Computed example of a mutant assay.
Amino acid sequence: MAAIDEQIEQVERRFGVQLPEDYRLFLRSRTGMSQFVPPADDYLMLDSADELIDINEAGEFQERFPGSLVIGGDGARELLTYDFRQSPPPLVLLDTAASDWSAAIPQAPSLTVFLDQFPETGWIWGGDSR
């Protein structure tokens, strides 16, 4: 088994989730990303598999957002997060200072849709849902 597959399995065991297949493929094909994405020119960070456990255990995030899994963000306070309270889990944006799920801003129903739309739309900052 490849090291990346072992890291993915560790994340799934630790948080009791099964990562969506498109996200698994992303993790296998890249070591994360951190860049401005044109033409929207918004900053997008997607964490590598070996960062996920530490990021998700920081700041009591799991206690405030049970069923969450942070996978990246905007490079500042906003975190791109899977909402595993739903099946399949959509992606939402959560502020690091938010106290509960009521602050979640829907981004996309899957990583594939998110990555397809992000260059044009960038981050959704209102209550708009895709």
Rank of each mutant, 00 (worst) to 15 (best):
1 M>Y: 01
2 A>C: 11
4 I>S: 01
5 D>C: 03
5 D>S: 11
5 D>A: 08
8 I>N: 00
8 I>S: 00
9 E>F: 10
9 E>Y: 06
9 E>M: 09
10 Q>N: 10
11 V>G: 01
11 V>S: 01
12 E>I: 04
12 E>A: 05
12 E>G: 08
13 R>W: 14
13 R>F: 08
13 R>S: 06
14 R>C: 02
14 R>D: 00
14 R>G: 03
14 R>N: 02
14 R>E: 05
14 R>P: 00
14 R>T: 04
14 R>H: 04
16 G>M: 06
17 V>S: 04
20 P>H: 11
20 P>Y: 02
21 E>N: 06
21 E>G: 14
21 E>C: 06
21 E>R: 11
22 D>N: 08
23 Y>L: 14
23 Y>K: 05
25 L>H: 08
25 L>F: 10
27 L>R: 00
28 R>M: 05
29 S>C: 09
29 S>L: 13
29 S>P: 00
31 T>A: 13
34 S>K: 10
34 S>D: 09
35 Q>N: 06
35 Q>S: 13
35 Q>L: 02
35 Q>R: 13
36 F>V: 12
39 P>T: 08
40 A>K: 07
42 D>Q: 06
42 D>T: 02
43 Y>A: 14
44 L>G: 03
44 L>V: 09
44 L>A: 06
46 L>S: 09
48 S>M: 10
50 D>T: 06
52 L>P: 01
52 L>R: 05
55 I>V: 15
55 I>H: 15
56 N>C: 12
57 E>F: 11
58 A>G: 15
58 A>F: 15
60 E>G: 13
60 E>W: 13
63 E>A: 14
66 P>G: 09
66 P>M: 10
68 S>D: 11
69 L>D: 04
69 L>I: 10
69 L>W: 05
71 I>W: 02
71 I>V: 12
72 G>T: 14
72 G>N: 12
73 G>D: 05
74 D>W: 06
74 D>I: 15
77 R>S: 09
78 E>V: 02
78 E>M: 15
79 L>H: 03
82 Y>Q: 06
83 D>L: 07
83 D>H: 12
83 D>T: 02
85 R>E: 09
86 Q>I: 12
87 S>N: 15
88 P>I: 05
89 P>E: 02
89 P>H: 02
91 L>C: 09
91 L>I: 14
94 L>I: 12
94 L>K: 01
96 T>F: 03
100 D>H: 14
101 W>H: 02
102 S>G: 01
102 S>H: 09
103 A>N: 04
104 A>M: 06
105 I>D: 04
105 I>T: 10
105 I>P: 00
106 P>S: 05
107 Q>D: 02
108 A>S: 04
109 P>W: 10
111 L>F: 03
111 L>S: 05
114 F>K: 03
114 F>G: 07
115 L>H: 07
115 L>N: 07
116 D>G: 07
119 P>Y: 15
120 E>F: 15
120 E>S: 14
126 G>E: 08
126 G>P: 03
126 G>F: 03
127 G>P: 00
127 G>S: 11
127 G>F: 08
128 D>I: 05
128 D>A: 12
130 R>W: 11
